[in-house]
Computed example of a mutant assay.
Amino acid sequence: MTARTARQRLRDDAGSAVVEFPLVAVLIILIALTLIQCALVVHTRNTLTDAAVQAAHTASLEGNEPEDGATRGAQLVHDRFGEDYAVEVDADEKGEGVVRVRITATFPLIGLIGPSGTLHVDGHAIDEETW
């Protein structure tokens, strides 16, 4: 009789929900954190790209130099992310009258804390003085 009750207990699925919930919850939380991380990286990249394009436009205006665009790009990034955000802005003018602004910045790899990677974005504009 005890062998039969042990066999019935092994086939019975009572209590399986208690085990299934933590296993599924871990996967759902992992997927949610991955989506949040991807959104954070895309937001950072898009904001830096916009700052580079606006900085290139500023540098391309008549009477402005590439350094004015670099200053504007750094100002835009610091206004958006704060003064503690590590960013390097370079601006130069190519021979064919195109102004290029390159922003090199870090983006967080694990949420808002932890190690970070490097991101390079460019913005281009035609110099008005070459028209």
Rank of each mutant, 00 (worst) to 15 (best):
E96L: 09
E62C: 03
S60G: 01
D12F: 10
E129Y: 13
G123Y: 09
V98W: 03
S116L: 04
A25L: 13
T2F: 08
D92S: 09
F21I: 14
A6H: 11
G97L: 02
G95A: 14
P22H: 04
V77D: 00
A39T: 06
L33I: 15
R102Y: 02
E20I: 05
A105F: 10
L35G: 11
T47V: 15
I31V: 12
D84Q: 07
G63N: 08
R80L: 06
N46P: 03
G114F: 14
G114H: 15
V99F: 09
R9A: 14
V101W: 08
G111H: 11
R4K: 09
E65Y: 15
L48Q: 02
D79A: 03
G97P: 00
D12H: 06
G117F: 11
A125F: 04
R72Y: 07
Q75I: 12
Q8T: 05
P108F: 08
T130H: 12
D12C: 08
T34V: 12
I103C: 01
V42F: 15
A55N: 03
T44E: 05
G95S: 11
D79K: 11
P22I: 05
A52L: 05
P115H: 15
L109H: 03
T71I: 15
R72T: 02
Q75N: 03
V89N: 03
Q37K: 13
N64V: 04
D13Y: 06
G69S: 01
D12G: 02
I103G: 00
G82S: 06
D90F: 09
I126K: 11
